[in-house]
């Protein structure tokens, strides 16, 4: 494929605009994005302008943007928040839910109110329950590498040549499917049970146990065993599982894709 051999840096002249929108989350997702260290500067130097971000950009009103990265779930008793996600959807071409809270509610799923100074704020839902979300990047926190990969691929989807668009489309498809799936916004260890193990797909590789941020998963008799009381509903185990989604055609090019990701981050 031409895309892998061409010097990709040369092509990328038109930056995209991105924003970070903070709903009910802990800023861990933003921290994870920043944990790309010099990588984040490369992204902002070459591929994207950050046009909105509560802690990083001095802009009060949500502007139009190509890509919105939403972190956190949404409190439906907070009109500011519900209006805001709606506005984000209206003003962005691509909405990416980053992190467990935005994708599947994460620990905010356990919230039932009673906290000062807004004790009536008791109902938190993932962003995709309120607006159409295009791409999911689950896990608590999402990894710097996953955010990097998705940012680069989204850039290619919007600004790349035909082949780059095709590659980015292939790469992002499962994360788009996840955003629309009936189980995506309900993800937890139970999703791994119901969509993988209960369906006879698990082969005991241990990806889920490695992915779990709270070490709720051990491997017993070769299969994942979940301590469900520890599970925070981040969805990492299910998304990491090679039997949740797997595209053989794309994965065959793993070497070239890793090489490309490395090259564009130089």
């Amino acid at each position: 494929m031409e895309i892998f051999t061409e010097h990709v840096n040369g092509i990328m002249i038109h930056k995209i605009t991105i924003g970070h929108i903070h709903e009910s989350g802990c800023t861990g997702c933003l921290a994870a994005l920043m944990d790309n260290y010099q990588g984040i500067f490369t992204i902002l130097d070459k591929y994207a302008d950050l046009v909105y971000g509560l802690t990083l950009v001095d802009v009060r009103k949500i502007p139009k943007m190509d890509v919105a990265l939403i972190e956190g779930s949404v409190c439906i008793q907070d009109k500011l928040a519900t209006d805001e996600v709606r506005e984000v959807r209206d003003k962005s071409s691509v909405v990416i839910a980053i992190g467990g809270c935005a994708c599947s509610g994460n620990i905010t799923r356990f919230d039932r109110g009673g906290q000062q100074n807004q004790p009536q704020h008791e109902s938190f839902v993932p962003v995709s329950d309120l607006i159409d979300v295009d791409i999911f990047v689950p896990a608590c926190a999402p990894t710097p590498e996953a955010l990097r990969n998705v940012c680069v691929m989204t850039y290619l989807l919007l600004r790349g040549n035909d082949e780059q668009k095709a590659l980015a489309g292939m790469y992002l498809k499962p994360l788009m499917d996840l955003a629309r799936s009936p189980y995506g916004s309900k993800a937890s260890f139970n999703t791994l049970m119901q969509e993988v193990i209960n369906l006879g797909l698990c082969m005991g590789c241990g990806s889920c146990a490695a992915a779990c941020p709270v070490r709720a998963i051990t491997m017993e008799y070769g299969k994942p065993q979940g301590l469900r009381d520890l599970c925070v509903n981040c969805g990492a185990c299910f998304s990491q599982c090679p039997r949740s989604f797997f595209d053989h055609e794309l994965m065959e090019h793993h070497e070239q894709i890793m090489g490309m990701l490395k090259a564009v981050m130089q």
Binding site: P138, E145, G206, Q240
Partner: peptide, 20 residues
Amino acid sequence: CQIQGVRKAQLYPIGMRGVP
């Protein structure tokens, strides 16, 4: 299948911080 898991961990490192 485990190698598929490893490659997925590299391309989609959803919960694989520091691995890829």
